[in-house]
Design a protein around this nucleic acid. Structure first.
Length: 498
DNA sequence: CGAATTTGACCCGCGC
DNA sequence: GCGCGGGTCAAATTCG
């Protein structure tokens, strides 16, 4: 909206210029050199051209805005609809899930009625409303029985083709303008900067009910540079020597927008100085450069997921569909050293192993113990190599994978080993290629890979939503360095419409 | 000269 | 209540 208005202002300015310029020669200045008149005519022409371009752009922006508004309305209606359904089911069913059934879905929740029933616990209404909000991550084209592709892109303004606006700004996250928490947030906007920094507005509602929990995403990567370039702008605001690690921990704050609540901590691993551990906290409340969307997606998805208990507990649905090699750990020994604060649920993305699929670990509580990743499983597919220390020293991830392997790593990574407290999230392909909702037993080996890849190829060809999601995912990988980019988006882009 | 970084002081939560 | 440790602030310093 502002952009469009800005354009209008610009247009009127151009018009003013035009009138003054066209009036120039008419003032009867007969000594005016002919050349100057020619120059003015040229300027007039260029102004006209500029005005035309501005008009076109304005039109385009208006269309874009219309589309966004349309999507918003659709989502809003869907939200209400699902909320009503959910309320009905709540009163009608008393279904419980095992306490030890743990699963999660990055940026996605299945809204199948059956799944909702299965996922339902004794959550209170608040938790349910949060679960329903999580539904908004879904592609709005899907129906309730379907598993949908959801892009956990933070501030995904550039890629609206799928119609899924997943900007993490509070207005989008809490789509109902009549939401009471929104009102509260507006009332609280006059609070001190410190308050606004410490509690991201998008988390306000959550924090009111569950104050101490702030989601974190921990990225471990080999990196020679003092910090890893994730595409965002950061300002260092502190440095500390933390206990148990001789390397200082640096504290950064996102400076892309003045009120952005996102922070990151960067510290070298005590055991291996070549490993850099970056811990992200919060959700960006502003548009991001494309090169930053991958990491931002991680933090956003993690925050959405971890701050919403229902998106964990209710995700029996996710348990039957999760495709990302994602782990949940409640084993204290597997906690990241970076998750130093208690009550900081943390997802750890381990990118330190070359030629291995990205590994994800999630911790629900924390202590000061050192990071201790689960045992390496030789059954991880070696499909994508993600390495922060690129040979060109450009601080970007180098990404080595062809598409075929990328698909595999996104969807077909497998594991046969499991810790006592590491729960493998079953990855299940649509149409029941693989379906193993049991969490305490190793999932069966997936179908023969060539078949799976063929199925993936078919699905990609058939599903435009998937194509657009994949396009964004790939561009995030590739980033702005022309071939090297940030490679952490595989946990966000969900490929399970296959 | 303004912006970014450094660094010591301070605050706060937690465990004993 | 006290000490410890993590996190943040803000004045001083450095950098571009």
């Amino acid at each position: 909206m502002e952009v469009a208005l800005g354009r209008s202002d610009h247009e009127s300015r151009v018009k003013e210029e035009k009138t003054t310029e066209s009036g120039g020669p008419d003032h009867g200045d007969e000594d005016h050199p002919k050349q100057e008149i020619d120059i003015e005519v040229e300027e007039l022409e260029s102004a006209k051209t500029e005005m035309g371009e501005a008009r076109e752009e304005n039109q385009r922006l208006k269309q874009c805005l219309d589309r966004v508004m349309k999507d918003y309305r659709t989502l809003e209606m869907k939200f209400k609809d699902v909320f009503q359904k959910e309320t009905k089911h709540q009163s009608a069913t008393t279904c419980s899930e095992p306490d030890d059934l743990v699963s999660l879905s990055l940026g996605r929740v299945i809204c199948s009625n059956d799944n909702n029933n299965n996922a339902r616990t004794n959550d209170d209404d608040h938790q349910k409303s949060k679960a329903l909000k999580a539904l908004l991550w879904k592609d709005n084209n899907g129906d309730d029985e379907e598993e949908d592709l959801a892009l956990g892109l933070a501030c995904k303004f550039e890629t609206s083709k799928s119609g899924s606006i997943t900007n993490n700004s509070p207005n989008i996250t809490n789509p109902s303008p009549t939401n009471s928490s929104d009102q509260e947030r507006v009332n609280n906007e006059s609070k001190a900067l410190k308050t606004s920094r410490d509690s991201y507005s998008g988390e306000d509602e959550v924090s009111q009910h569950n104050p101490p929990k702030r989601a974190r995403v921990c990225v471990r990567a080999r990196c020679d540079a003092p910090t890893m370039n994730d595409g965002c702008q950061w300002r260092k605001y502190g440095q500390k020597i933390s206990k148990g690690n001789p390397c200082p921990r640096a504290y950064y704050r996102c400076t892309v927008a003045p009120s952005c609540p996102v922070k990151k901590q960067v510290q070298r691993c005590a055991e291996d100085m070549s490993v850099l551990v970056a811990t992200y906290e919060g959700i960006h409340n502003h548009p991001l450069p494309l090169s930053a969307t991958a990491m931002a997606s991680t933090t956003s998805a993690a925050a959405s997921m971890l701050l919403s208990p229902s998106s964990l507990s209710s995700s029996t649905a996710a348990a039957t569909t999760a495709t990302t090699p994602l782990y949940f750990s409640n084993n204290p020994s597997s906690l990241s050293s970076s998750s130093s604060l208690p009550s900081h649920p943390t997802i750890t993305l381990d990118l330190t192993t070359n030629s291995a699929a990205s590994r994800f670990f999630m911790t629900s509580s924390s202590s000061s113990s050192n990071y201790n990743p689960p045992p390496r499983s030789s059954s991880f597919r070696s499909s994508a190599s993600l390495n922060f220390s690129s040979p060109n020293n450009n601080n970007f991830l180098s990404y080595n994978s062809n598409n075929r392997n990328l698909f595999s790593s996104m969807n077909l990574a497998r594991s046969t080993t499991m810790d006592n407290n590491i729960y493998r999230l079953p990855y299940v392909q649509k149409n029941s290629v693989i379906n193993n909702p049991t969490h305490h037993h190793p999932p069966p080996q997936p179908a023969a890979l060539p078949d799976s890849i063929a199925a993936a190829t078919k699905a990609i060809a058939a599903d435009p939503k998937f194509q657009s999601a994949l396009a964004v995912a790939l561009s995030s990988f590739i980033g702005s360095t022309g071939g090297s980019g940030i490679g952490s988006s595989s946990q966000i882009y969900r490929v399970d419409s296959i």
